[in-house]
Design a protein around this nucleic acid. Structure first.
Length: 302
DNA sequence: AATCGTTCCTGATAGC
DNA sequence: TGCTATCAGGAACGAT
């Protein structure tokens, strides 16, 4: 599921490829992908606009248009954006046609649930391009917002982990007020932007904190370590272009490599890389949670 | 006011 | 073999 590093990877790809392109048409294969607006209105307002910038906030991807409107993409669990030549076509159910090679990224089952295609014209590129939005589970969406409504949506998120506001003092202030599980707090988008299930588990393992530790029981020293760990892990994951243990693909359909260096996420029963104890899986806040019961002991070392 | 449960959806997998 | 039931999971929203 795309979290901060995965959406950042998509953002970097599209910054290179999308800026300056004009959206010349839209193929809508599943109208439900468009939220908060009638599909016809959406198409009328988007077609003809030029992409002026691509940014990320929390797990959202924001594509600014020359019309001073913004496309807001959320990938949820299985959303992928694919940037490709316009010769690629899909059938009525959103599967790519004429996939000759099994090695082609388009052959990947997870790139074959196309819900909407943006057709692009860019004079500086040799051929026309498309931006296709694939999403197996139909949780992902795209919205068209003006500046005011975009600000309203984005203001609900907590600080970005690489912003100045995200410092040890901030973590102390939010943790001290609540006794809920630290993992739930790390994943609360209104408190910290961009951390999801994979990175929450990896961060807590690296900082040796039990995922169910009440947030207000964590010492100042541990908060400092946690702060550093959040930044270190997210930075490394961005450098490795994300985690693709299940669904994530970049805009050319390729996997990220952070999945190769995971220590606990989806490693149930496998030895902890630090002490060899089998990794345990529990549920925290309704989410599958992986940790080492020995080096992330509950109620100790907090 | 804060927190919990439900909802959206499909494919993989387990169980019979 | 082939069916049905269960589960995963981000985050908005309704319920308590």
């Amino acid at each position: 599921m795309p979290e901060l590093p995965e959406v950042e990877t998509i953002k970097k790809d599209l910054e290179t490829n999308l800026i300056g392109s004009t959206i010349t048409g839209i193929d809508l294969l599943w109208p439900g992908i468009i939220k908060d607006m009638a599909p016809n209105t959406f198409q009328n307002k988007v077609i003809g606009a030029k992409v002026t910038s691509v940014t990320r906030r929390a797990k959202n991807l924001i594509v600014q248009l020359s019309s001073d409107k913004f496309l807001l993409f959320h990938m949820k669990m299985t959303g992928h954006l694919i940037f490709a030549d316009s010769c690629w076509q899909v059938d009525k159910s959103g599967r790519w046609l004429s996939v000759e090679s099994k090695k082609s990224p388009m052959h990947d089952p997870l790139n074959q649930y196309i819900r909407i295609i943006f057709r692009l014209d860019n004079p500086s590129k040799k051929t026309d391009k498309i931006l296709a939005f694939s999403d197996l589970r139909k949780f992902a969406y795209v919205k068209l917002l003006d500046k005011k409504h975009l600000a309203l949506v984005l203001d609900r998120y907590g600080p970005e982990p690489f912003s100045e506001k995200f410092n040890t003092h901030y973590l102390q202030s939010i943790f001290s007020k609540k006794s809920i599980a630290i993992k739930k707090m790390l994943m609360d988008q209104a408190l910290i932007a961009g951390i999801g299930n994979i990175y929450a588990d990896e961060i807590l393992w690296a900082a040796k904190i039990h995922p169910q530790t009440p947030a207000n029981k964590i010492s100042v020293d541990k908060i400092e370590l946690l702060h550093k760990t959040i930044q270190d892990i997210l930075k490394k994951a961005i450098e490795m272009r994300g985690t693709s243990t299940s669904d994530f693909r970049d805009t050319s359909g390729k996997k990220g490599s952070f999945g190769n260096v995971l220590n606990v996420y989806r490693k149930t029963g496998q030895p902890c890389p630090r002490d060899g104890t089998p990794i345990k899986r529990i549920t925290v806040g309704g989410r599958g949670t992986h940790f080492c019961p020995t080096c992330q002991k509950e109620g100790s070392d907090v």
